[in-house]
Design a protein around this nucleic acid. Sequence first.
DNA 1: TCTTTGAGTCAACACTTGTACACTAATATG
DNA 2: CATATTAGTGTACAAGTGTTGACTCAAAGA
Lengths: 190, 190
Amino acid sequence: MDAALGLVGGGENFSSISLREVAKNAGVVPTSFYRHFTDMEELGLNVVDDLGLLLRKLMRNSRQSGAYAEALNRSSIEVYTDFVSEHKNYFYFMCQCRTGGTLALRSAIRNEFKYFASELATDIRALPLLNQVNSLDLDMMAQLMVETVFESTIDFLDQADTSPNFRQEFINLMVKKLRLIWLGAGEWRS
Amino acid sequence: MDAALGLVGGGENFSSISLREVAKNAGVVPTSFYRHFTDMEELGLNVVDDLGLLLRKLMRNSRQSGAYAEALNRSSIEVYTDFVSEHKNYFYFMCQCRTGGTLALRSAIRNEFKYFASELATDIRALPLLNQVNSLDLDMMAQLMVETVFESTIDFLDQADTSPNFRQEFINLMVKKLRLIWLGAGEWRS
DNA sequence: TCTTTGAGTCAACACTTGTACACTAATATG
DNA sequence: CATATTAGTGTACAAGTGTTGACTCAAAGA
């Protein structure tokens, strides 16, 4: 799995990586691949699971630090961008497969997002700002926030190394977008 | 190009489609491919150009019908979803390549988005609702709206055929998200 | 201690892939 | 009419692909 992620991080597309490449990158003979996975797709699904664990860990940490309570303010965006930088390969993989993977892979990732969004929804449910919002609309809002962040991740990955202050610009833009959504949420009447 | 798009629409990932497959699907011998493109990437870039033309056409139509003036209300979302349904292959391609293409392909698509968003920005600039918003923030808002719509396109493509009322549910959700953003925009003070 | 099992090796297969070269036929252009 | 150009054809090759089957060997469990 690390070998596959390495290739993805190196610029290859997961869907066009061959079993043999993975094996070679893992320092192992091609036939050994079958000892671990039947398929490249199965390998991909396992990576999605790992990614899910990673994201849950991130979420736990954010909750502890209290940043999460205000759900996606500046500091939580900073945490996120750092996290992405530390796990570039995983996020390249995720960005690629969310739209370009097998149908099974796509829906596996979709599910991770749903989980993430629903966790966010329960966390912000209690906020007094949102007491005019019903449960369905709350889900919609959480979904929009999560999507907004994830959607921009590929841009961050692509450009993070281009200029030293891109990270700050990116964070500023992200914060604005989320503030805009929060502003709308405050006015929302279900 | 149609042959390539056909393969994409059939579930294959553009980045793993071979030159030979395209040739076969076009009813032509592999070596003939080189008469038109040097590369699969070059073919891809040409498809992006075509897609750009398509999107501009869509935008023109929406403007004429007046729906666009209110920028992404229900009827313009309906127009968009119909448009996507009519050009599924193009949109599968776009969704795939925005995150999974070559770097050149990715940034070509990014540019189309930028163009689209900036057009939207100039269209909504005059709205009295937004007279407290400066130019930079307006761009950010237009960008968020465009992203929000495009980001969900893959979900629409994947699930449009699953249930007969998915289209309506999708439109409802989309309208809500955009309404949320508009609500925020109305409160925004740059 | 014997035996099962997990993870690796090697050789081989039929097939696909990108690309090169030499050739043909229709269609524009001078 | 002659000539260039454009889009197609067939053959060929070296490299890469997924998958098979039979083998080794260290570690874990009985």
